[in-house]
């Protein structure tokens, strides 16, 4: 197992996909510099008696000013409403699908290591990659906030809360990824898994503000931490985690069955 794990990390060396995902996070976070003034105006106009949809939503979430505390909440909402599903699905499609596209799946299947070990190792790689991106998003947001707000009002507790919220948003998405992995193994290329991710992303955003969001694994992050245009968060009930964990287990079993019974080079 450790051999497979070490190998899976080695395979990422010089991989452009790592660079691209980092750039997506940095690019998305830096948009905050342009968005904050707009949000500040909406909040400001609401304080002046006017009403705006964004301002109303933020007021409902208790975000009545742009401060370190509120600004750091945008990170987890970025995971749930922007890059989480699509980027993590892309990573999964890459980690599993590249082997088929490059023909290295055959070489892996002829090694004296169980095929299941590679699946588990890949899922660990995806987990580390996902958490890494979450932490990068937090670090980048600290930079953006420092530029926009200065260091006045900064506190580590906001950073820690942002890390916790990001992980809370990433966790249900991660639990859906074996389904993407299964799709990646079923067909070469990224198209099918990414189309699937896009559909799930669309459904998840359409459930924003609805109770049902807490029971559909792809929209659980939306329910748990909110999204930038509806920053209302609520605690996920235990049954939500049960559903997401069941989906993960079913997906993983399907992937393991796929690789163990596969017509790898048919």
């Amino acid at each position: 197992m450790m051999r497979a794990l070490a190998a899976e990390f080695s395979k990422l060396k010089r991989s452009r996909m790592v660079l691209w995902t980092v750039l997506v996070i940095l690019g998305y976070t830096s948009i905050g510099l342009a968005v904050f003034p707009v949000i500040k105006d909406s909040i400001g106009s609401m304080a002046g008696g006017a009403s705006s949809p964004v301002g109303d939503a933020f007021a409902a979430a208790g975000m009545t000013e742009i401060s370190w505390e509120t600004a750091m909440r945008f990170i987890a909402m970025g995971v749930s409403g922007a890059w989480g599903i699509m980027l993590l699905s892309l990573i999964t499609a890459y980690v599993f699908g590249r082997e088929l596209r490059e023909g290295t799946d055959i070489a892996s299947a002829t090694l004296p290591i169980s095929r299941g070990s590679f699946v588990v190792a890949k899922m660990v790689v995806i987990a580390v990659w996902s958490v890494g991106l979450g932490l990068l998003a937090v670090a980048a947001q600290v930079g953006v906030d420092a530029i926009y707000l200065g260091l006045e009002g900064f506190a580590w507790k906001y950073v820690l809360q942002a890390v916790a919220d990001s992980l809370l948003a990433l966790a249900p998405i991660y639990l859906t990824l074996p389904v993407v992995a299964w799709l990646s193994l079923s067909r070469k290329g990224y198209l099918r898994p990414m189309l699937f991710a896009l559909v799930m992303f669309t459904i998840s955003t359409s459930l924003v503000g609805l109770d049902a969001a807490a029971y559909f694994p792809w929209s659980m992050p939306v329910a748990a931490v909110g999204v930038t245009w509806m920053p209302l968060a609520s605690e996920l009930p235990p049954v939500s985690w049960l559903i997401a964990t069941a989906l993960f287990a079913i997906g993983l079993i399907a992937v393991l069955r796929k690789v163990n019974r596969a017509e790898i080079a048919a």
Partner: peptide
Amino acid sequence: VPNAIRALERIGSMVEAAGSYGNLTVRE
């Protein structure tokens, strides 16, 4: 059969265009 580990330990194989990782060097 799949996961015939004991046999695969003693077999070397090359199928198709060899299945190496393009982003890694030969040494890697």
